[in-house]
């Protein structure tokens, strides 16, 4: 495996549970214990009720492509060497949206609304990055 040149996660106290979960094959997001709202990427408080009490909960890892773009010019290390590459907004079945990449599919074959599922890529020693691929069925 050639060395992974793309930016690695910068672990913080706030986001660490998400990246630790990825190592176990779980896609973890925050869930407010006061009102039940779920959100991602990590933020210190619930944007619905402003509570700072939350827990980390594993989501299904299945969802759809809400929108996607294809970079033909690159600014970031690693990605610059893989043009053109895609970035997608994924909407999980629980309603949470976030930025990610689609793997295992040609950029020309990506469609808005496509069903996708999470795949956990070990990109470096002890670093696992969740990405998404077309759903099996």
């Amino acid at each position: 495996m050639s060395e992974y040149a793309k930016p690695l996660p910068r672990i913080t106290e706030l986001n660490e549970p998400h990246w630790e979960g990825a190592k176990r094959g779980e896609f973890l997001v925050q869930r407010c214990t006061a009102c039940g709202h779920i959100w991602f990427p990590p933020s210190p408080n619930c944007s619905d009720c402003l509570s700072e009490d939350y827990e980390w909960t594993a989501l299904s890892g299945t969802g759809t492509v809400y929108s996607f773009i294809v970079y033909h010019q690159g600014w970031l290390a690693g990605y610059r060497d893989e043009l053109p590459y895609n970035v997608a907004i994924i909407e999980l079945d629980e309603g949470v949206r976030f930025i990610n990449n689609l793997v295992g599919v040609d950029n020309d074959a990506i469609e808005v609304g496509m069903r996708v599922e999470v795949v956990f890529e070990e990109v470096a020693a002890d670093v696992v990055v969740p990405r998404f691929r077309p759903a099996a069925s």
Binding site: T12, F40, G74, V87, V112
Partner: peptide, 25 residues
């Protein structure tokens, strides 16, 4: 955006990306 420390992990850069997502949608 504010989820900034996830953006570069997934290759998201340049504010024009927002408009590109918008038009794709």
């Amino acid at each position: 955006h504010l989820g900034g420390n996830f953006d570069d992990v997934y290759g998201l850069s340049n504010p024009g990306a927002v408009a590109a997502f918008n038009y794709r949608r």
